[in-house]
Amino acid sequence: MAKGEITITESLCKGCGYCVLFCNRGCLTLSKEKFTSLGMALPVFSDPEKCNACAVCAWMCPDFAIEVYKFVETKATA
């Protein structure tokens, strides 16, 4: 069960691949189909089930393109 998810703003991403390098759980891979205007491969959130919202990808993103969300389980009051 996924504990978190990330969104990548592809218009800001320059395709450096630091998120793929620093993700400890291997959730991200570099795309083989989508590229930036300079020809760098864009990252894809390919394995969302492994994500635990550690936010390392967002810290190491030089272009502020990644946002990390954490799923917090809340007991329903009803």
Binding site: Y69, F71, T74
Partner: peptide, 11 residues
């Protein structure tokens, strides 16, 4: 009885 709330932790 449990729901998942999505909170932003980094960005």
């Amino acid at each position: 009885g449990a729901t998942l709330a999505k909170t932003k932790v980094a960005g």
